[in-house]
Nucleic acid binder design. Structure first.
Lengths: 362, 362
DNA sequence: ACCGGTGCGGAAACCGTATCCCATGGTTTC
DNA sequence: GAAACCATGGGATACGGTTTCCGCACCGGT
């Protein structure tokens, strides 16, 4: 339509508008704003005045096209509603902000299709790194897919960070930030065993989920260490949600399963289990003990407060971001599997009030 | 360094690389990819082959500079850890994804400074809209600040959406998606009153927070409607967290306050209150009834399950995004305060097991 | 066989910013 | 007093795409 010169025009002000109005060159405005070049006080004043008047902000797209631009991290999360993930996200975000980085959050809803789309989207955005949160499904296809992602991102100058899942096999350009999942489960199960429990209902999670596998394995090892036979019939798999905890216990009670404790794969599952026990007329922890995993706020808000395994989610987020930042600054030095590509954080049992020595039961 | 032509070069592939390798022009590649221009089958095939080989994705920055680009919504949230906010975010995200929009999440940590920085950051990103989540602090300065944000964004072709807080006063270019906060509180309080409760401890939240003010006002109106005098001493203000709920009840018990029910401003506050009551040797709901507000998953996971007010958080998110999308498509027709700028969603009481008629107490 | 139309590919002009290179004027140095 | 220099500001170009405008072929019609 019009010559786009019109004063009160719509659309945002450009650096050119500022330059023109201040009677200086575009380059000068850019320099005043980025401040990486000597400028006279007079010039700075004049430019800043106009910037204020026009409420000008630089166009981030143009800036990053031209080479500048603030680094961005993308956080890919299954479900923004999950407390544990939210804490990791918080950690990443906080650490990113601290360095002036930007962070995006995308949710995949557990849909591989959507995950693919998001990774590509992030690649388009030219993000410095993509942080993938949560346990992985242990299919071969999944491994391949991730390896492809990693290479793809790497080729584009970006980087893949896996948080809360085991590292990829082979020589894949990705960083993993993990926690001692199996160790936590071992400690947690040991806690129950040393309290005298022998009949334990185990709700590790989905059988194909790496976190569930690790937790189950840790528990198993503890049983072995205590010389207690591990009964596979006492294991019920299912999703990490309240409903599963509830139903698993409900079913077990109906089936007449004999147990004095529940080892839940997650605090939320534990909450469901607790509710089902109550519904079944059992007291916690007098009749049945319960332990969880994750140590989300919910754990200390339940009655009784839940004994659980603390996972340093927020710190994992911070560590993940630091890893990316270091790699980016450190220049692309060593690349291949030299360690530093796999960080493992510790876990520990938090003892609260949901465990007692087993009472005699029917 | 080198002439940037080198084949296995680092950095992502450009559209030029694709064109060259496919033996066609840059324009043709662009056309094949955006698909808004007729292309021969042969050409499409050749280009797609190379795109696959090179694992090429378009540079989002360049694209949006050139006019195209996918619209982006920014979600600004106080604390990503809050369940209610997370649900709104989920709603926004879901609706955005559905239309192929992108969404960012930023957290302000309740820091006005950071909020300002984020809004500017989003302005730089050229987002289609900025969605601000959560109750507002009712200072005059805050109103001014928001009005400035709104105008700033509007001038840049973006738009401000306020979710879960009352609309801005005056003629400000912003959309508000709100819920019937006061009505919900009115209904909730009525529920307690009709059960026979007359001594109610009220924990509405921070006195300056608009949501807290609305909830308090609704409760007050219910008391009036029932002809029950409202005792200001029975109101304890504080943050919307578990600790506040716990401490408020703990203090009230210590002070010897006489109450048969707790009207909490939030489910999380209710959870804290419940715990404190138990710690004080009181049963819920036999000795003291409790109600919450928000209806986050926690509410139905507590024991007893919490009677609360359902707020359609996720839907609010969807509605917020729809409002933005409509406005963007509908062309900048009407602007000023004609309604449609303020949407209000309904709330309703969800009755569970945390309320009983009052028992006789000391 | 010539002409107009149609369909498709190419060259070039932007989009808004950062930066490289050069011009200029005043200051320091011999 | 002239030459070399430093501090600044301006002009031009690159970044990676999209899109408009053109031109070239190839088609059918007369």
């Amino acid at each position: 339509m019009s010559q786009r010169k019109a004063a009160g025009d719509a659309g945002r002000a450009t650096i050119r508008d500022v330059a023109e109005r201040a009677g200086v060159s575009v380059a000068s405005v850019s320099r005043v704003l980025s401040g990486n070049y000597p400028v006279s006080e007079e010039l700075r004043r004049r430019v800043m005045k106009v910037v204020g008047d026009l409420d000008y902000v630089t166009n981030a797209h143009a800036r990053s096209l031209a080479g500048g631009g603030t680094p961005t991290v993308a956080i890919l999360i299954n479900n923004i509603t999950g407390a544990a993930f939210a804490h990791v996200a918080k950690g990443v975000e906080g650490a990113a902000t601290l360095r002036g980085w930007l962070s995006l959050v995308g949710t995949t809803g557990d849909d591989p299709e959507r995950e693919l789309a998001l990774v590509n989207l992030m690649r388009q955005q030219g993000v410095a790194a993509v942080v993938l949160l949560g346990g992985a499904y242990d299919y071969d296809e999944y491994q391949l897919r991730m390896a492809r992602f990693a290479r793809s991102l790497d080729a584009a100058g970006s980087h893949l960070v896996l948080v809360g899942r085991p590292p990829l096999e082979g020589d894949v350009p990705a960083t993993t930030v993990d926690y001692d999942n199996e160790g936590g489960a071992y400690a947690m199960a040991s806690h129950l065993l040393s309290a005298g429990h022998r009949k334990v209902l185990v709700l590790p999670g989905h059988a194909e989920l790496t976190t569930a596998q690790g937790r189950l394995k840790g528990a198993r090892r503890a049983f072995e260490a205590y010389g207690v036979p591990f009964d596979p019939d006492m294991v019920r798999h299912g999703p990490y949600d309240y409903e599963h905890g509830y139903e698993a216990v409900e079913d077990s009670l109906r089936d007449g399963l004999d147990f004095t404790a529940v080892l839940a794969g997650t605090d939320v599952v534990a909450a469901g289990a607790m509710q089902a026990l109550r519904a079944g007329g059992l007291r916690v922890p007098e009749d049945v003990s319960i332990v969880g995993y994750d140590d989300i706020p919910l754990a200390s808000q339940l009655t009784p407060q839940l004994t659980t395994v603390h996972v340093p989610y927020e710190e994992m987020g911070r560590v993940a971001l630091r890893a990316v930042a270091d790699r980016r600054e450190g220049g692309g030095g060593r690349r291949k599997g030299s360690d530093g590509d796999h960080l493992v954080l510790g876990t520990h049992v938090v003892v609260r009030n949901s465990v007692q020595p087993p009472a005699r039961r029917s």
